[in-house]
Simulated assay, not measured.
Amino acid sequence: MIFSFALILGFQILGEAIVRLFGLPVPGPVLGMVLMLFAFFLKDDLVDGIRPTAGVLLANMSLLFVPAGVGIMRHGERFMNEGVGIAVTLVASTLIAMAVSGYVILLVQKVLKIEDDE
């Protein structure tokens, strides 16, 4: 489990280093996950080694949201003042993401010539 956890953290640190080195507009942990995905393709047994540790991390993922909850509680007045703007932004960004995802799926279907089963 220590090796798996070190490997996950290593990919996160590598992603963060690359982002900072090249000034990329992507979060370091996201780039680290992409690099880990490529590593999974290159070495098949890597997935089986990380799976138990990843399962434990996912099972306890709710603990990772505690700092966000504390931040919301500490800045309650700000949410009261700017809550409408935050809510509108959340709804609008969700709708935009859903629309873009739908169009990308349609584009991929057209490019790959996949027919709908309807």
Results as ranks from 00 to 15, higher is better:
T89N: 11
G32T: 02
L64E: 02
R51A: 15
V104D: 14
S101A: 15
G10S: 03
V56Y: 06
A17K: 05
R51T: 10
S62W: 13
D44Q: 10
L31N: 09
P25D: 04
I96L: 10
V47P: 09
V66W: 03
D116K: 14
V70M: 15
I18V: 05
L107T: 15
M36K: 03
E82C: 05
V111F: 02
R51Q: 07
L112I: 10
Q12A: 10
G69I: 00
V104M: 15
Q109F: 00
Q12N: 13
I13D: 12
G28Y: 05
G55P: 00
A39C: 01
L46Y: 12
K110Y: 09
V91H: 00
F38L: 15
G76C: 01
Q12G: 12
E118W: 14
L37W: 14
A97D: 07
G28A: 14
P67Q: 04
L14I: 13
G15H: 01
V19H: 01
D116R: 12
V66C: 07
L63F: 15
F79A: 08
L7C: 10
M61E: 08
A54K: 00
G69N: 03
V19I: 06
T89M: 09
A87F: 13
R74D: 08
P25W: 08
L21Y: 02
S93N: 11
V56Q: 06
E77C: 09
V70Q: 11
G85C: 03
I18G: 01
L57C: 06
L7M: 07
L112H: 12
D45A: 13
G49E: 03
L7T: 11
P52T: 02
T53I: 01
A92W: 06
G76W: 08
A99W: 00
I13A: 14
G28P: 07
L58W: 01
P29G: 03
E16K: 09
I96V: 14
M61I: 12
D48Q: 14
P27W: 05
I96M: 09
V91Q: 00
G71Y: 08
A68V: 15
L46D: 04
G32A: 12
L42H: 07
L21C: 07
Y103G: 10
A59E: 03
L58V: 06
G83I: 02
V100Y: 03
G15R: 04
I86F: 06
I13V: 14
T53W: 00
Q109N: 06
